[in-house]
Design a protein around this nucleic acid. Structure first.
Lengths: 220, 220
DNA sequence: GTGGGAATCAGTCCTGAGGCGGACCGGGAT
DNA sequence: ATCCCGGTCCGCCTCAGGACTGATTCCCAC
């Protein structure tokens, strides 16, 4: 028997889920809550396996509630439900340790199999949002280290130019700063790109930060 | 009609898939290949919608093949198949832009729906491995401790594009990674530059680092 | 249902950027 | 003296990048 808790601020939504889940022989609804605070409180008294958690709720949202719930020993799995597509809140919830992510318009059959999946330890992500999730992963997981041509293959003058490029200046602006002709700056930059095996100035900026040539100063 | 290409070094596996897919009225197998090199070569001659790609193969593995295939204009979607669980190779394939990830013991019905899903642009991840994917996300995604600044004037999608710009990718490459047209990427980037009052992508890279959107990690 | 923001894509236009070749100068190494 | 190299400068040519306009779809808010 899978012990489920419903958390949603809309009465109607809870009713809908209750009807779907209530008909299942292996699922039992052990509590309901209208916001995150209620959910956390309710879970202190009972043992549950899976929490169906809305993200946007008054008082305490689903993210914070998820965080608190999962901080407890022997915590249940949390399955996030939202009306909209994958958004900030949903990501935050996943970071908080949620086991999955579904849209509220999920077909009943899918909802049920999702509950059973998270119960056995698997995770579930709505098909339409898996795409975004993968995109995110590729965005943050940089492709493995580049071969990196070394910084000291550059001449002093080239490093100087790179420094300016890495501040976001145009060739013209760099020329003015260094009292050079634009053509000269282009020549230097061309050599820099060739030596470091970079394609364009944008990659040069990335290189400057990643190599430690310059370092970001968090606020100021 | 969905035009599918099978890539696997084991004759037997291809035969199995051929039998499953062959029975479908809306699916057509247009080519088969025994390794990555063959697959790339085969795809040069024909138009395909979905490639079922094994990861571990002789000569050229599925990751490299995926990278090459997706670098072409008008590339098909690539669906990764492995015998084992989510491993290095599979992640590399996802980074290379694959649309999904399944185990070879996937039930035929699931395989078919997966093919149809990726064909329409969605992504698919085997349920048993979604867990790891989420773990990955939580492990690598920076905690919500971002100083942001003006960053929240950007939409989620724009931030995503900025993330890719900040890694030195060209508009074309970003388009491929995010499964968009180059025109769309340019539109997004244009709005990003306008909102953040930046001039070009090089300044966008600077902004990404300085705002803490990404942080340099001079290797560990 | 009407309006508006977000996301998607197309097409045009113009400029900065970057590749390539060539040239001159000064100094250090040979 | 000669040669090489780093720094400087120039022109030519192509193209990716960015500005702008406009259209469509979806979905939410009023």
């Amino acid at each position: 028997m899978i012990r489920v808790v419903l958390v949603d601020d809309q009465q109607l939504v809870r009713t809908g889920f209750r009807m779907v889940l209530g008909a299942q022989p292996d699922i039992e609804i052990v509590a309901e809550a209208a916001d995150g605070a209620e959910a956390v409180a309710a879970l202190r008294g009972i043992r549950a396996d899976v929490v169906l958690m809305d993200v946007r709720m008054p008082r305490m949202d689903g993210v914070e509630a998820t965080r608190l719930i999962l901080a407890e020993p022997d915590a249940p799995k949390v399955l996030i439900l939202t009306t909209f597509d994958l958004d900030e809140y949903a990501f935050a919830a996943i970071r908080a340790g949620a086991s999955g992510f579904l849209l509220k318009d999920v077909p009943p059959a899918d909802l049920l199999s999702a509950i059973r999946s998270v119960h056995v330890g698997d995770a579930v992500v709505a098909p339409s949002t898996t795409r975004r999730l993968l995109d995110l992963v590729t965005a943050y997981l940089p492709s493995e280290s580049r071969p990196v041509g070394n910084l000291n293959v550059l001449t002093a003058r080239e490093r100087e130019v790179l420094l300016h490029v890495a501040r976001g200046l145009s060739n013209m602006e760099i020329a003015a700063q260094l009292h050079l002709a634009e053509a000269t700056v282009k020549t230097h930059l061309g050599r820099i790109l060739a030596k470091l095996e970079l394609r364009d100035r944008a990659q040069a900026v990335v290189y400057a930060y990643e190599s430690g040539l310059i370092s970001s100063r968090p606020k100021g």
